[in-house]
Design a protein around this nucleic acid. Structure first.
Lengths: 185, 185
DNA sequence: CTCTACATGTAATAAGTTACATGATTGC
DNA sequence: GCAATCATGTAACTTATTACATGTAGAG
């Protein structure tokens, strides 16, 4: 499941340019479980074009740069289904935040407090971002899978935010205690 | 936050061999937010040794292969704190599972059913794996950060598993409906 | 006049994965 | 006898990130 497959998936929902694909990954319904920048999307589209899994038509626009609109081919749809049918690979997660909280005792109380506050803000932003695309994903016309994936993301974010609100103070409390002990020495 | 920093973090809790580090990442308290295999851990330890952030003593054992026990140096501890103090980088998540569920309408009901069941099993395993190391992480002697990180991971897994139990059937129901429609054609 | 949005791409670099290579011991 | 655990490492490959490179138009 690489960026090529991601592009196939997005194109299976409708034609798009590289720019639009990137927007769907950054802000749209894929944002909570995939990341990709231009530097991986454009090369991926190039390879898909080479192997005939997508087609491309150039569109000149006035008062806008030309754009290349990609559309998925029949072979592309088959390749997508193949990729989806492959044995489930485990999710890849690497959390700088959790790594940092694990070693919170090495930071100052001020740092810990900021860490928690920033993360809470980030969860709020993420939830807002996701709710902004709820209207396009959570309608009856869209497949159930889209609603499901969206709902699972929201649920997880909300559970995590709640945990932070419930337990964040414990981290700060310990940091303050350690600082008092240091001061006593 | 790369594998080098991960090694520094783990070594800050006590000396370890490359093999033991890998075990902590695969099964220990780091398993839910970091991944690393031998192929990244050994080279990382090599680089840390070169730059003097860790020290290494060789230990021969009888009836076991020799091992290299690494320990963090003072500079290593400083480097770790530096890395922890760096501005929070967003978590990296790439979920094959969520990608697949998003496009569940392209799969057969059988495939969807298996997907959900396997994922639920995976969550159960993950929760069990994490609870197995609860005893070493969730004691009063360990820093609050370890308990916090552990608790957040468990909370998120449980919330996700609950969501699957609550909404997984919707996905299967749609798949069955699509199959009936196909059969009708 | 500055910032954001639109729009595409390449090159250099960094990072990590997979496969390869080896080998003893312990428990079933 | 076979699988699992302990134990270390390299080389080739794949992949993705970052920085570079360029340019228009509309909104404020």
């Amino acid at each position: 499941m690489d960026v090529k497959t991601l592009c196939l998936g997005i194109l299976s929902r409708g034609d798009a340019t590289g720019y639009e694909i990137r927007k769907q990954v950054a802000e749209g319904p894929f944002s909570h479980f995939f990341e990709a920048g231009y530097g991986s999307i454009y090369p991926a589209l190039g390879k898909l074009l080479e192997s005939g899994l997508v087609a491309c038509r150039e569109q000149s626009q006035d008062s806008r740069p030309d754009k290349k609109v990609y559309s998925i081919s029949t072979n592309g749809r088959l390749a997508l289904i193949d990729a989806l049918s492959a044995p489930a690979a485990p999710d890849r997660v690497r959390s700088q935040f959790l790594f940092t909280t694990f070693f919170a005792h090495l930071l100052s109380a001020r740092q810990v407090e900021r860490l928690i506050a920033e993360r809470l803000a980030w969860y709020c932003e993420s939830v807002e971002r996701m709710e902004r695309c709820s209207e396009t994903v959570c309608t009856a016309e869209r497949p159930a899978g889209e609603r499901f994936t969206h709902g699972l993301g929201l649920t997880v974010y909300k559970a995590a935010a709640q945990y932070l609100e419930d337990h964040g103070h414990e981290l700060v409390a310990e940091a303050l205690k350690l600082e008092r002990m240091d001061a006593a020495d």
